[in-house]
Simulated scan of single mutants.
Amino acid sequence: MPPAASARGPSRSASAIVVADTARGYHILRIDGYSLTKETPTGECIKSHPFTIGGHRWSIKYYPNGNKPDVKDYISFSLHLVGAPTEKVKAQFQFRFVSEVPDNSLTSEDVDIFKGTGGWVYSKLIQRIELEKLEHLKDDSFAVRCDIIVVNGFRAVEEHAEVITPALVDVPPSDLHQHLGDLLLTEKGADVVFEVGGQTFEAHHCVLAARSPVFSAELFGTTKESDTEGVIRIDDI
C-alpha cells in the first residue's frame, strides 16, 4: 500500500487593491442675489469660474430651477471636467452647504469617470422652499462647497495572511500545589519523620527528594539515613 500522505494545513495568502495616488481639494461657490437667479428657466444654468484640483480643470453649474422638468422645484448642481474631449478622470465628489458640519462621507462616494466636458449632476440638492426656510440662506445669499478626490490609479499589494489558530481546549490552572499541601496536612502516605528541636514532622521522602538535591542525596544516595526508626534528626536548629 502507498504510504499515507502527511496532513497539511491549507495554504494562506492575501492581497488588497489600494488607491495608488489621490489628490483632494474643494471649491466654494457663493450665490449672491439668489432671488434674482430664480428667474432662470428650468434646464438652464449659471456657470462658476473654472478651478483646478488634482491637476485638472473643473467647473460647477448652478440650476436655480432644476436641471430638468421633473425636478423644477429643486436646486440642482453639477460638476464638469473642463478639458480635451479624450481626457478621462476618475474622481469622487460631494456637494454640501458651507454652513453644514463637515463629515467624512466623501470617501464612501462612488468613483465616477469624467470624460472630456462631461459632468455629473446633483439634481435634488434641496427644494427651493426648504432652502428659503433654512439658515443656509442669509441676506439673499448662500454658498455650497464641492469636495473632490481625484483618483489617479489603483494597484494591487500583497498582504500577510492572518494565521487562524485552531481552537484549543481550555485547560484549567494547575492545582498540584493544593493536592501536595493536602497530602502534607493529612499525612497520608507519609514515610519519613524529621525530629527538630524535640518536635517531629512527618513528610514524604519522594517529594523532598524531588524538591531538594540535599534531601535527594540523604534519602536515596550514599548518605542515605540508616536509622532503623526512620527518623531524621536535625540538630542545632
Rank of each mutant, 00 (worst) to 15 (best):
H204E: 06
H204R: 04
H204V: 10
H205Y: 04
C206R: 04
C206W: 00
C206V: 11
V207N: 03
V207A: 11
L208S: 03
A209P: 00
R211S: 15
R211C: 15
S212Y: 03
S212W: 00
P213R: 09
P213K: 08
P213N: 05
V214M: 06
F215K: 00
S216H: 06
S216C: 08
S216E: 08
E218I: 07
E218H: 04
E218G: 05
L219C: 02
L219I: 08
L219G: 01
F220K: 12
F220P: 00
F220Q: 08
G221K: 07
T222Y: 03
K224Q: 15
K224E: 12
S226W: 00
S226V: 12
S226F: 01
D227M: 10
D227P: 06
T228Y: 03
T228K: 13
T228W: 01
G230P: 04
G230F: 06
G230E: 08
V231L: 09
V231G: 09
V231K: 12
I232E: 02
I232F: 02
I232Q: 00
R233A: 10
R233S: 11
R233Q: 11
I234G: 01
I234S: 02
D235H: 13
D235L: 13
D235A: 12
D236C: 11
D236W: 06
I237F: 14
I237H: 08
I237C: 13
